[in-house]
Design a protein around this nucleic acid. Structure first.
Lengths: 229, 229
DNA sequence: ACCACCATGACAGTCGGTTCCACAGCCCCC
DNA sequence: GGGGGCTGTGGAACCGACTGTCATGGTGGT
């Protein structure tokens, strides 16, 4: 083992400790095994009906060890969220410097939603979350953390000293809000229809904003003549 | 006690669930007592550090009875949310028939935020929620329920057979999202500054939408010349 | 080969939440 | 006025989630 090819060449010294870390990957392996077992059990038996012992048993570790890898049963549900969170912040950071918040928002949603749709486990997790309140709860609390990170990502884009927390937090909140609706709608359609769903959401959003350019200014009159559809 | 006035007059035999119900108010009284005791303890000792026995003890009921009034410790946190939820749906329903969604949104936020700011306990609860993740979790899961009701309220406004769930859910999600940001910002300012906070949020929202009338249509170019502020 | 370390597992303990039972007041009808 | 039901309540036993401690065993380093 310890595939010698682990680039002895470059020192990688200062930058990230960088070690693929022989040992720590075993940890990751076990961690994934537990997670896989848990998701499967949740799908089969339900979230509430699955005990930690069941999971530990299925994964081949002791109950005590389970808690060394996941701080709680709920934490399993949050596990999938973290990659989603980093995907969002990365997408925001990757946008061109001169993009407006709205542009950042759109490209981020398209990108991340498209990516998440390809992850096979994504749907399974969301179905569990949709079915069991306790599971959803666990996700939501983690989403709150993600929101802070997203806000930070937005704030980092602001060239002139970030205007204030409020702006960034509002953008973050709106973004994740749209994500939530999008995922929920996607759950009720075909797995491959994510991009369709995203565009439908965008169109609906436009509908909302249409009668309302003056949100920040005055009281406009609504052109509900043609209304929706 | 046993106020003889148990209305022997009307033969409430068949249908008695008519009104306030002398007895059910005693229940409400106890319920409030438990809630008060809990909120105080949470503020003093912290959410996680306060056990159910502590609360039951402080309120003068048994542990068993506590669970008869609140389904869980988390449920205490959700208690305040329900009135908030009905306030939102009521405000939406009260808007003039011909108002656009955006108008409904604005008036609802102004109205409900203003009202919530006057409730003395509102701030205390939010401070607890802000401080203890477990408490926040409990609220969030209840907010998810509220969101469904708000979506329903939006859907009911749609004259021509509601376009679809997506529209209503998106509006609801955006509305509650803005509420969340608003309350959070309000927490960091003076209690009496709610209306100021609301307008600040609206202004920021306009900023977000400004570079972006084309959200639903094409890819616009950003006018980041002046950028924010 | 030895030692130091870290992951693991067995136990016991706390707390949230549920279930079952037993007791006290109340109301109604006999 | 005294049983029988209904309800609200407390008590105690239980289960599952989660934590802290300790002893063991495998691994890496020297």
């Amino acid at each position: 083992m310890t595939v010698g090819s682990t680039a002895p060449r470059r020192e990688t010294r200062l930058l990230r400790p960088a070690r693929p870390t022989l040992q720590s990957r075993k940890q990751q392996f076990v961690r994934d095994a537990i997670w896989d077992a848990a998701i499967d059990l949740f799908s089969e038996k339900g979230f509430d009906e699955t005990t930690v012992d069941d999971i530990a048993d299925a994964a081949g570790v002791s109950r005590r060890s389970f808690f060394r890898y996941f701080s709680s049963k709920s934490d399993l549900m949050a596990h999938g969220i973290v990659s989603y969170g980093t995907a969002v912040t990365d997408a925001i950071a990757a946008c061109p410097k001169n993009a407006t918040p709205a542009e950042v928002f759109r490209t981020t949603v398209r990108e991340v939603a498209g990516h998440q749709a390809t992850q096979p486990r994504t749907r399974k997790i969301m179905q569990i979350a949709a079915k069991y309140p306790a599971a959803r709860e666990a996700q939501l609390s983690r989403v709150a953390e993600v929101q802070d990170h997203v806000a930070e990502a937005f704030a980092r884009r602001s060239p002139k000293g970030s205007p204030n927390d409020l702006t960034a937090h509002l953008f973050a909140s709106l973004t994740l809000s749209v994500f939530g609706v999008t995922f929920r709608a996607w759950l009720e359609s075909s797995p491959q229809d994510m991009s369709i769903t995203v565009e439908r959401v965008f169109a609906t959003l436009g509908l909302f904003l249409a009668g309302d350019g003056e949100l920040a200014t005055g009281s406009g009159r609504r052109a509900n003549k043609k209304s929706k559809r």
